[in-house]
Amino acid sequence: MLSDSEAAELLSFLTPATRPDVKAKATEYILGLSGHRDGCRLLRSKPDVVSALVALTSDPSVAIAKDCYHILINLSADETLHQVLQEEMGLAQLVEIFCTEGFNKKAKLHYLGPLLSNLSQLPEARSFLMDKDRCVIQRLLPFTQYQPSVVRRGGVIGTLRNCCFDHSKTELPPTPPLPSKPPASRKK
């Protein structure tokens, strides 16, 4: 599908200094690859390409940054790539960027919501998100009502849904004792 030499050539097009039209073609190509399971697995074996895509999420071209976010969302949907993306991005940094409106003046970063949602399928990510000392869930809650972007809002709702299904972190109140049955009355 993509040889090592082709991957190296593709990587050379994924730099901030590359002409925008060339970067756009490269990210479009990778977006197509990321739409298929085999393409995601191939990209998993190319950590330098993933690193370059993460760096290009802050590209001045909104189209290129958006393609990179879509690629990362596609990659995060594949459970075998979760660990690669946490190592590359860092969940704490991702949440910080997501919760800081205006973090990037050139891009709205709404697509970090679906990325968080996909990553929250991973037990380690849910553990981080639901850590009582970090208060991450509390930071995400206001975005369930975020009117400017249905993408951001939906991503947070998906993240919270995934966290709700983690039974290891759910604290249930103690079960009250059942009332004892009154003795059956005997009629004469």
Results as ranks from 00 to 15, higher is better:
53 L>R: 04
16 P>S: 00
8 A>I: 05
38 D>V: 13
30 I>S: 06
41 R>P: 01
34 S>F: 09
53 L>F: 11
40 C>H: 02
51 S>T: 08
56 L>P: 06
35 G>C: 02
54 V>T: 07
35 G>S: 11
71 I>Y: 15
8 A>F: 00
68 C>M: 10
23 K>C: 14
18 T>Y: 03
8 A>L: 01
15 T>K: 02
27 T>F: 14
36 H>T: 12
22 V>Y: 13
24 A>D: 14
67 D>R: 04
74 N>T: 01
51 S>R: 06
24 A>Q: 09
20 P>V: 02
61 S>C: 11
28 E>M: 14
75 L>C: 09
29 Y>G: 04
53 L>E: 14
19 R>Q: 11
63 A>Y: 12
14 L>V: 11
68 C>A: 15
33 L>I: 09
9 E>M: 10
10 L>M: 14
48 D>Y: 06
22 V>G: 04
33 L>P: 05
22 V>D: 06
7 A>F: 05
57 T>R: 14
49 V>G: 07
44 R>D: 13
50 V>L: 05
27 T>L: 12
51 S>P: 04
29 Y>P: 03
30 I>P: 04
31 L>T: 03
19 R>A: 15
42 L>T: 11
65 A>L: 09
18 T>R: 04
8 A>M: 03
10 L>A: 06
21 D>F: 02
13 F>G: 00
71 I>M: 03
15 T>C: 01
21 D>R: 04
65 A>E: 15
29 Y>E: 15
37 R>Y: 09
11 L>W: 03
7 A>L: 01
38 D>W: 05
69 Y>N: 14
74 N>Q: 09
32 G>R: 05
25 K>T: 10
59 D>H: 15
21 D>Y: 12
47 P>L: 02
71 I>F: 15
38 D>H: 13
45 S>Y: 04
23 K>N: 09
11 L>A: 11
11 L>Y: 03
36 H>D: 10
65 A>I: 08
66 K>I: 08
23 K>E: 10
7 A>C: 08
72 L>Q: 09
63 A>W: 13
24 A>R: 12
50 V>Y: 01
72 L>K: 02
15 T>Q: 03
53 L>Y: 09
45 S>K: 08
23 K>G: 08
